[in-house]
Simulated scan of single mutants.
Amino acid sequence: MADIDAGLLYHLPLAEIEKVMFYKRDEVTSDLICCDVKIAGKTWMFHEALGGWDLLIAHLSGLPGFRSDALATISQPPFAASETVAFRR
């Protein structure tokens, strides 16, 4: 996947997002924080190593009732499976 930019975020209008879920993947020596965004029956998958990750988080933070603590919730303990729904319509 290409980096996250305004052009990509255009395809994720807040009014149409159905669900946002954060989870982490064990990458052997580190965890990779991931985010799935469900919109119009399609799931867009992102991860923190992509350029523009901060733009995605800022965009999703505009959702009503978005759980701003979601990233902190899944980050600990390291290497343990963890996921949380940050938004659901």
Results as ranks from 00 to 15, higher is better:
Ala49Thr: 09
Asp36Cys: 06
Ile17His: 04
Asp5Leu: 07
Cys34Pro: 04
Leu50Trp: 10
Pro64Ala: 01
Tyr10Ser: 11
Gly7Pro: 05
Asp5Tyr: 07
Pro77Ser: 04
Val28Arg: 10
Val85Ser: 00
Phe79Gln: 06
Arg25Lys: 15
Phe79Tyr: 13
Glu48Ser: 02
Glu18Asn: 12
Ile33Trp: 11
Ala86Pro: 00
Leu14Gly: 02
Leu12Glu: 02
Pro77Ile: 13
Leu14Asp: 03
Phe66Ile: 12
Ala72His: 06
Arg67Ile: 09
Leu60Trp: 00
Met45Pro: 08
Cys34Tyr: 06
Ser61Asp: 08
Ile57Phe: 05
Cys34Phe: 05
Phe22Ala: 02
Thr73Trp: 05
Ala40Asp: 13
Gly41Glu: 05
Tyr10Arg: 12
Cys34Leu: 08
His11Phe: 10
Ile4His: 09
Pro78Trp: 12
Tyr23Glu: 09
Ala81Asp: 14
Ile74Lys: 05
Thr73Lys: 06
Asp36Val: 06
Gln76Cys: 08
Cys35Tyr: 02
Leu12Ala: 01
Phe22Cys: 03
Ile4Glu: 08
Arg89Phe: 01
Lys19Gly: 01
Leu32Cys: 12
Gln76His: 13
Phe87Ser: 00
Ser75Pro: 02
Val20Gly: 11
Val85Ala: 01
Asp69Ala: 06
Leu71Arg: 12
Phe46Thr: 10
Ser75Asp: 07
Asp31Lys: 01
Leu32Gln: 13
Ala86Val: 03
Ala2Asn: 15
Pro78His: 13
Leu32Lys: 14
Thr43Ile: 14
Ile39Arg: 04
Glu83Arg: 06
Leu12Gly: 00
Ile17Glu: 01
Arg89Pro: 02
Ala15His: 08
Ala80Tyr: 05
Trp44Leu: 12
Lys19Arg: 12
Ala86Thr: 00
Ala86Tyr: 01
Lys38Cys: 10
Lys38Trp: 14
Arg25Gly: 13
Gly62Ala: 05
Met21Gln: 14
Met1Trp: 08
Tyr10Glu: 12
Tyr23Val: 05
Gly52Phe: 14
Leu71Cys: 07
Ser30His: 15
Ser82Lys: 15
Thr84Trp: 03
Arg89Met: 03
Asp3Gln: 12
Leu9Cys: 04
Val85Thr: 04
Gly7Glu: 08
Leu71His: 08
Arg25Phe: 09
Val20Asn: 09
Ala58Phe: 06
Ile4Pro: 10
Lys38Phe: 11
Ala72Thr: 06
Gly62Asn: 07
Ser61Thr: 08
Leu63Cys: 07
Thr29Trp: 08
Gln76Arg: 13
Ala86Ser: 00
His11Ser: 09
His47Gln: 07
Ala80Ile: 01
Ala58Asn: 10
Ala49Gln: 11
Ala2Gln: 14
Ala15Glu: 15
Ala6Phe: 12
Asp3Leu: 11
Leu32Tyr: 07
Met21His: 08
Lys19Cys: 02
Phe79Cys: 06
Asp54Tyr: 15
Phe66Asn: 13
Leu12Asp: 00
Pro78Met: 14
Leu56Pro: 10
Met21Asn: 09
Thr73Glu: 15
Val20Glu: 13
Pro64Val: 00
Phe79Val: 01
Trp44Gln: 12
Thr43Pro: 04
Ala81Val: 12
Asp5Cys: 10
Leu56Cys: 06
Ser82Glu: 04
Arg88Asn: 12
Ala15Asn: 09
Cys34Val: 04
His47Asn: 14
Leu63Pro: 06
Phe46Lys: 11
Tyr23Arg: 09
Ala70Asp: 02
Ala72Leu: 08
Lys38Val: 10
Gly41Leu: 05
Met1Leu: 11
